[in-house]
Computed example of a mutant assay.
Amino acid sequence: MGKRSGTLETTLLAIELLRRIPRNRKVTAEELHAQVKEAGFDRDLRTIQRQLDLLSEHFHIERDTRTKPYGYSWQKNASGLSVPGLTLQESLLLRLAEEHLRNLLPAHLLKSMDGFFAQARQNLDPLGPPSLERDWPAKVRVVATSQPLLPPKIDPTVFETVCEALYGNRYLTVTYKNAGGGVTTSRVTPLGLAQQGPRMYLICRFDGYDDNRALAIHRVQAAEGSTLTFKRPKGFDLKQYDDEGRFGFGDGKKVRLTFRIDKDHGHFLLESRLSEDQSVKDLGDDYEISATVVDSAMLEWWLRGFGDAVSRVRRLKIRP
Rank of each mutant, 00 (worst) to 15 (best):
D44A: 05
L172C: 04
E133L: 09
G115V: 04
P151A: 07
R312E: 15
R213T: 09
P106D: 08
E164F: 00
V293I: 15
T145H: 05
L149P: 02
V142N: 04
L104T: 06
F116M: 01
L92R: 15
R246D: 00
L88V: 03
K26Q: 15
I21C: 08
G266R: 04
R205C: 14
I61T: 07
P106T: 07
R46G: 00
R63E: 10
D42G: 01
S5C: 03
K111N: 14
E133I: 04
V310C: 11
L96E: 12
D264L: 13
V27F: 00
H108S: 13
G248I: 04
K281A: 14
A138V: 01
D53N: 10
V255K: 04
E224H: 05
D277V: 12
L8M: 14
R314P: 00
Y287G: 06
T229V: 06
D155S: 10
V280F: 08
K253Q: 08
G197Y: 07
Y72P: 01
R19F: 11
L127C: 03
V174K: 01
A222P: 00
G168V: 00
P126C: 01
P84L: 12
E16L: 00
K26R: 13
V158K: 05
K254M: 10
R213S: 11
L94E: 03
R4I: 06
D125M: 07
R63D: 05
L270Q: 14
K317G: 04
H218Q: 08
I15Y: 13
K139T: 11
V188G: 01
K37H: 11
G245D: 05
I289T: 11
R121Y: 03
I154K: 14
Q89S: 07
G284S: 08
T28H: 09
S272D: 14
K139N: 07
Y72S: 01
T87W: 01
T292R: 10
E30W: 06
K26H: 14
D286E: 15
Y201E: 13
A29K: 13
L124N: 04
N24I: 02
T10F: 02
E224W: 00
L228H: 06
A78R: 09
T227D: 13
E271P: 01
S311T: 15
F230I: 09
L299N: 14
R141E: 12
E271D: 15
V183R: 11
N77P: 00
L93N: 09
V293G: 08
A297F: 12
V220Q: 08
T87Y: 00
P151L: 12
I21E: 03
D44S: 03
G208M: 12
D308P: 15
K177L: 12
P156V: 09
M1V: 03
Q240D: 15
T185M: 07
S290A: 15
D285K: 14
L109F: 12
R134W: 02
C204R: 00
E160L: 09
V313K: 10
A291S: 15
V158Q: 07
M298W: 10
A179Q: 11
T292D: 13
N123S: 09
A291I: 12
F159C: 03
P126K: 01
P198D: 00
Y201I: 12
L193S: 06
G85H: 04
L52D: 07
L193Q: 10
I318W: 03
D42I: 07
V188I: 15
G80F: 11
K239C: 02
D237S: 14
Q75N: 03
K234W: 00
V140R: 08
A214E: 07
